[in-house]
């Protein structure tokens, strides 16, 4: 692709030092994000996709959390090591976040208007007088009726969908270049979900904004994503354009995920599922973390961690099955 890479995450490791042991929530995540692209981070709950998102802006609780390795390069600037004031000027301005649960992510004692304007005033001090107008315009863009009135409302006075849209409006208030959306549709019902996805698609097209969309729902990936990264046990196991992921997945874990998608045409007695449980992030299996659950497990999988292998130019997966040295094929 010709588009310029805007964000690059390189071998990121975020560990939490708890009393019960080291929780390796993010354990070697790498991906790139192009301008105007929507990258989906897909995985089961607890696989580390949310912590990855938080790590980009260093928003996890520290202590106990710590980035032990890796880089997050935004336009060449390493966000994991840059000075706090610089990072703060990027948070909410260049890279904005939208959280899963608007109910708890919005401060209950301030009005929506206060919370949006606060962000505008922080990053664009000379826009003071316009901040209210700008906030109104944002809510209108989010298709919230009577935007000027909605600004005066407290979160508890809004419906779930309105809150989530207000949350997105807040994320967009400083015209960010990257929007990180952490499961923004999980806590809302289906009709609102469709609205939000529509809004995000429109935004991406109109503003040429990059989106990192975090979800466990593969049907959403199909609707919104350009590329998808599958995360398992704190690692990216496969990255590919969405069509590839959905139609010809490479990694056995991705294959498992796709086969779990319910198919209306198929006549099934039981819904298929991947056997076993997601690994405990304190005690990740040796070798390939997926090997205890993998249907095509080999001896080497138990000891040697697979590298990211180029499968078809745009599709990359971390699995020994595609390593010619291991299988002796190709």
């Amino acid at each position: 692709m010709a588009a310029k890479t805007i964000l690059e995450v390189k071998d990121l490791k975020t560990w939490f030092y708890t009393r019960r042991g080291i929780v390796k929530a993010v354990n070697g995540v790498s991906f790139t994000l192009d301008e105007g692209e929507c990258l989906c981070l897909v995985g089961e709950s607890g696989c580390g996709k949310s912590v990855t998102a938080l790590s980009i802006l260093r928003l996890f609780d520290s202590p106990p959390g710590k980035i032990v390795e890796g880089k997050v390069l935004y336009e060449g600037l390493d966000l994991t090591t840059c000075a706090m004031p610089l990072l703060r000027s990027i948070r909410g301005k260049d890279i904005a976040m939208v959280f899963q649960n608007a109910q708890s992510a919005l401060n209950p004692v301030f009005t929506i208007g206060d919370q949006i304007e606060e962000q505008i005033n922080t990053h664009m001090p000379h826009h003071d007088r316009n901040s209210r107008q700008k906030a109104t315009a944002l809510l209108e863009e989010m298709k919230i009726p009577e935007a000027a009135e909605a600004l005066k409302m407290y979160p508890h006075q809004m419906s779930g969908g309105m809150k989530q849209r207000a949350m997105i409006a807040m994320g967009l208030s400083c015209d960010p270049r990257i929007l990180i959306a952490d499961e923004p549709t999980t806590a809302v019902d289906v009709t609102i979900r469709a609205q939000i996805i529509y809004i995000l698609q429109e935004l991406k097209a109109r503003r040429n904004m990059s989106i990192i969309f975090i979800t466990h729902d593969l049907s959403l990936v199909r609707e919104i994503g350009d590329r998808a990264a599958v995360v398992y046990a704190g690692k990216v196991v496969e990255i590919a354009p969405v069509e590839h992921i959905l139609n010809k997945p490479a990694h056995p874990y991705t294959i498992g995920l796709i086969s779990c998608l319910p198919d209306i045409s198929a006549d099934l007695k039981r819904l298929p599922s991947i056997p076993g449980n997601t690994p405990n992030p304190i005690d990740i299996p040796s070798g390939c973390p997926f090997h205890p659950r993998c249907p095509s497990v080999m001896d080497i999988c138990r000891t040697v961690e697979p590298e990211m292998l180029n499968i078809s130019g745009v599709q990359i997966a971390a699995c020994h099955l595609y390593d010619a040295n291991v299988t002796g094929k190709r």
């Binding site: 703060r88 990027i90 909410g92 904005a96 976040m97 708890s104 992510a105 962000q119 922080t122």
Partner: peptide, 13 residues
Amino acid sequence: KEFVTTARAKGLP
């Protein structure tokens, strides 16, 4: 609370 993370994500001092 989550809204504290939100506030930080907004880039507030």
